[in-house]
Amino acid sequence: MSAACGTPLGLSLLVDYWLAELAPADEERVEAHLLGCASCGYELRSLVNLAGGIRRVTRKGAVRAVVTRAFLERVAADGLRVREYRVAPGGSVQCTVAPEDDLVVARLSAGLEGIGRVDLAICDDSGRERERVRDIPVSGAHGEVVFLPRTASLRAAPAGVDRLKLLAVEQGAERLLAEYIFVHTPSPAGPARG
């Protein structure tokens, strides 16, 4: 293990350096330090490994997240196969995941302008809420929520109906913004719902 550093670079500074967000003079100072300091280099390496890990689990479809249109363009440019389902408010779609799919996304269009907090409720066919994704990041200007579920979860899901609800949460009360119905059919090797 490396010797301790007397003037360690903080995590924020290392992240800023890694993402090329520093002014040239600050970048030069950080680089000179890193080339002379094994301890801070180790910290940066750990951060880089973590960043690489996030990239890998994302590519594997092992992360559930709300993403963006631009993100979808990037993963497609990287050669990943992305199955997209665009659904309008009140709409319904037949969906599945094929063996060759890397990622599957639900693109839920909605009027989101001016709403402070939005939750995504995942419900069964009867409307019973199974899971709540709280305070999702939404851009009113984009008019949609791009939801990336875990690919492995979809592969394991039996045939059935899921209702996704976008809810505005305001002053302790919630209001239904839109509901979307996903009728899931497993890929040929998938399980059957009992």
Binding site: W18, L19, A20, E21, N49, L50, A51, G52, G53, I54, R55, R56, V57, T58, K60, A62, V63, R64, A65, V66, V67, T68, F71, R74, V75, D78, V133, R134, D135, I136, P137
Partner: peptide, 30 residues
Amino acid sequence: VDLDRLASCLDRLHERERSVLVLTFYSERS
């Protein structure tokens, strides 16, 4: 990095935190 553990740890983050990390580090965005 232990990827299974990483996926599990990402799951524990708040939704906005996870989105920001994925969008940032998938392709090094500022």
